[in-house]
Design a protein around this nucleic acid. Structure first.
Lengths: 198, 198, 198, 198
DNA sequence: TATGAATGAGACTTCATTCAT
DNA sequence: GATGAATGAAGTCTCATTCAT
């Protein structure tokens, strides 16, 4: 009995999180009411508060998870990427681009709703983002140090690169002419062009 | 009726528009109440409605104007830019980057609040944006045709380029280490790298 | 010059009154804003207040005038109606019915918006109405006294009669099958039936 | 969820409906604010919206219910009224008159606030009213066919009759000289006079 | 775990009215 | 006589959140 209840609870929690993600993505943080989220999650308005402390906290959780997952994805890709700076950058960009495409709602959140976080949560999420930015910074600086990349502005390139890839969400159409793989590949190419790879 | 009156009205209208721009930019469309805007404009809540039909209409006007001004700026830059494709692209990107930096609030709106437009206004603004995108598309295709640019993906580069520059708003600090001019210059460089100039 | 102005003023006043009448009739007292009335009158919102002290006062004026005109119409009809009670009643009912039909908006106001008058104006208009009611009361009582009408309930008949005729507005269609004259005639017949004339 | 809760909800709903009925009747649809209704119902403004979709919908519900109840009342009276046309008409009129007197607020609404219904609700309520009008039409036409009533204008009489009885609300005083029963009886008499019964 | 009832704050918008010109 | 600018009050409705069960 307790077991069943626990299971059910887990399912509800999951449903709420997914509903929140898609609702926030579709209508924005302020535009999506808790009632709307509850409806989409298939539960009652008040039950949401058994799983979530507040709307603000809900957004924070989603953003935290998203940031961590993005980071993990890129890290994993780098794991099997060898030593060559160009190969490593390519691997990182492709992995990130694929993640962006496959987790559209998450990235819409990261890109646009992040600003509605209350102060304490905001600094926390900023740190997570910075970690990702530093990862790419390091990749590029490393390539420059080794003479593989010629760009005189590694930091600017790094920032522009992440921006560019994050914003694939803004135009990518799953049913469009370009496949996710192809889009990822092309952006890796753009990355190498930007760093002025050998 | 009188001149003074009309003048006062114009001033109020201007104040409201400016207040709305900054409020929407700071707190988002849904996060900025009309009362808040009125306060910042130094007028009463109800007086706002003597100048604006609705909140939605207000956002639409701001976005329309912004899109048009951006386009005009780039067009003007191209006017004195000569024939060389690389020069033309550089001129366009620098002009746009400068505009982005100098009209931060406008671009935050264009980048993030655009989605809250009601259907009819949205299509209208989309058209204006497309015009800008096509302008850059043409610039790049022209360079490719003339053999000045080598990129195999002119359309993708064009899109990524605009995204990248628009998003300067997301990180640029007026008091930071980089001047607007320098940022614009570097982005022009990125553009040329992306199109694989020379 | 002054003359022209005065004339113009008169025209504006008339336009406002007519607009108010039709607006109140269409949308009700609370449903018709002064701005709406001004628009229909072809003048500015604030100019209305050069002719009207307040919305309440405006309604009061319209109702006062309407009550007086109705009374006058019936009185005039009785003037040339001879001595016979049945003839007199017929004349009164026909005259009133015709007035009702020809001044639809006025009667909608009298029937339904009268209740929104503020206290002092209300009692005033009530007195005017009572005068009309008493006129019909007298007509019927006179007929009873002279043995022309047999109804045992002259007061109730009188009240029901006026109600019935006033409410022609609720269903009469100018383009309908029945002409105003015919409707008036039939209602006169109903009146004679109700008083159980000879 | 619990029984007590549900019961409480039902009570609140009932209180809101009753409050709305009396408020609309007293001050008119536009004159009665939802806050006023909530106060009278002894609940909060916002809680009203847990039971009512909108003010318009609230009015529609009240009018729908009222129309149905009126019809049912008359139908029931006819049920035990025998075959004689005059008896049937008398029964119908008395039943309706009593209903009108006993449900003053409902009839004020039906008579005067009906016009503020939004289009879709209006047609619905119009249909319900028409049903009642046809019932009386049939009663009178039947009497005419059987030679019990002599009126040459059955349709007009029918309409005038309903108008007359509905408008008892406009003057009847519960504490006045006439009892409800007496008023009903007299109106039945007027009905027979109008149809020129035997 | 889950829900229906409830609420105070606040959103957008409209209104009657006044005032300076 | 006429008008545009301005405002405070109020209206309908939504929201995040709490509580009792």
């Amino acid at each position: 009995m307790t077991d069943t209840q626990v299971q059910r609870g887990r399912a509800t929690e999951q449903a709420i999180r997914e509903a929140a993600l898609s609702c926030f993505s579709e209508r924005g943080y302020h535009g999506a009411s808790i009632r709307f989220i509850a409806d989409r999650a298939g539960t009652s308005l008040s039950n949401v508060y058994n799983y979530v402390a507040s709307k603000d906290e809900l957004l924070a959780q989603l953003l935290r998870r998203a940031s961590e997952a993005q980071y993990a994805q890129v890290l994993e890709a780098l794991d099997g990427a060898g030593e060559d700076p160009a190969e490593r950058l390519r691997a990182a960009v492709e992995a990130y681009a694929r993640y962006v495409i496959e987790h559209r709602d998450e990235l819409v959140l990261s890109n646009t709703e992040f600003r509605y976080l209350s102060r304490p949560h905001r600094t926390e999420v900023v740190e997570l983002r910075d970690r990702m930015q530093r990862l790419v910074d390091d990749l590029i600086e490393d390539g420059v140090r080794r003479g593989a990349f010629a760009t005189p502005y590694p930091a600017d390139v790094s920032r522009s690169l992440l921006t560019m890839v994050s914003n694939i969400t803004a135009w990518f159409q799953p049913e469009g002419a370009l496949s996710a793989t192809e889009v990822a590949r092309r952006h890796a190419g753009f990355a190498l062009a930007l760093v002025e790879a050998g």
